[in-house]
Amino acid sequence: MRFVRDDLQHPQVLALLEEHLRSSRSHSPPESVHALDVESLRGPGIAFWTAWDGEDLLGCGALKRLDAQHVELKSMRTAYAHQRKGVARAILTHLLAEAQANGFARMSLETGTPDAFAAARALYRDVGFEECDPFEGYVLDPYSVFMTRQLQ
């Protein structure tokens, strides 16, 4: 698996992000969908990575800088053809390492409560994330779970 700091131009990447948004919207009401669109992912303070096997896109994920010590995990997605193969864990491990290498002390995330997000919640718990209060402008929402983990 090869990780690339991505510029969000490749058609496969754009299709995966559209799939991510479509899926998020199908499981949560509009006000509870916090997935970022492509233009937002190109914004300042966001670093985006893709995972590849040759020319085959496996998945993606991003880090959004909240402050000098705190980063948020965003847009983590495994391509449907590669689910249940350890791709998400590998991407998450890569993003945790990137956050630590860049001096962040904490990583937080928001994910969904519907059953479609159960595997994601289990993965996050498995690597040390714990539920927390809403952060960085989020509010309590029955469709959201907030999680955080110390990095250093």
Rank of each mutant, 00 (worst) to 15 (best):
T111W: 04
C60R: 03
V71K: 03
Y143C: 04
Q100D: 09
F48G: 02
Q152M: 15
R84H: 15
V33E: 11
A116R: 06
P30H: 07
R149W: 10
R106K: 10
R125C: 05
T93D: 14
E110W: 03
F117E: 01
K74Y: 10
L21N: 05
V33Y: 08
L41S: 03
T78N: 03
A79L: 03
R25A: 12
V4M: 15
T78L: 04
D6Y: 08
S108A: 14
A101C: 12
L16K: 07
V145D: 02
Q150G: 14
G103P: 10
E130V: 07
L96A: 00
R125N: 04
G59Y: 00
S108Q: 12
A119M: 10
R42I: 02
L123F: 12
Q9N: 08
R22L: 09
L21G: 04
A97S: 08
Q83S: 02
L63N: 12
G103L: 15
T113N: 01
G59L: 00
R121V: 07
Y138Q: 04
S24A: 08
S40M: 02
T93C: 01
F104K: 11
F117R: 01
L95A: 01
A105Y: 15
G137W: 10
D115N: 06
F146M: 06
L16G: 06
K85I: 02
F146C: 06
R125L: 03
L21I: 09
H82F: 05
V38T: 08
V87M: 02
A118L: 09
T148R: 10
Q69P: 05
G128D: 15
A88Q: 06
S75R: 03
E19C: 08
E136N: 13
A101N: 08
H70N: 14
A90H: 05
S108P: 15
R25N: 07
I46W: 04
G112N: 02
A118Q: 15
T93L: 02
E130S: 09
H10V: 07
L96I: 05
Y80K: 06
W52R: 05
E39S: 14
R106E: 15
D37I: 07
P142C: 10
V127G: 10
A79G: 05
L58A: 01
A105K: 12
G59N: 01
H20I: 02
F135T: 00
F117N: 00
V87R: 00
A122R: 13
G128C: 09
L92Q: 03
V4Y: 10
L140Q: 15
A81Q: 10
M1Y: 03
H70K: 14
R25P: 01
F3H: 09
M107Q: 12
A105W: 13
D53Y: 01
S24F: 06
G112K: 00
L36R: 10
F146A: 03
R125K: 07
D126Y: 13
D56T: 04
A62Y: 15
S23Y: 10
R77K: 14
W52I: 04
G45L: 05
A88S: 06
A120R: 03
H94N: 01
S32A: 11
A47K: 14
H82V: 00
T50H: 09
G43H: 04
S75T: 14
E98H: 07
A15T: 14
L96Q: 02
A101S: 14
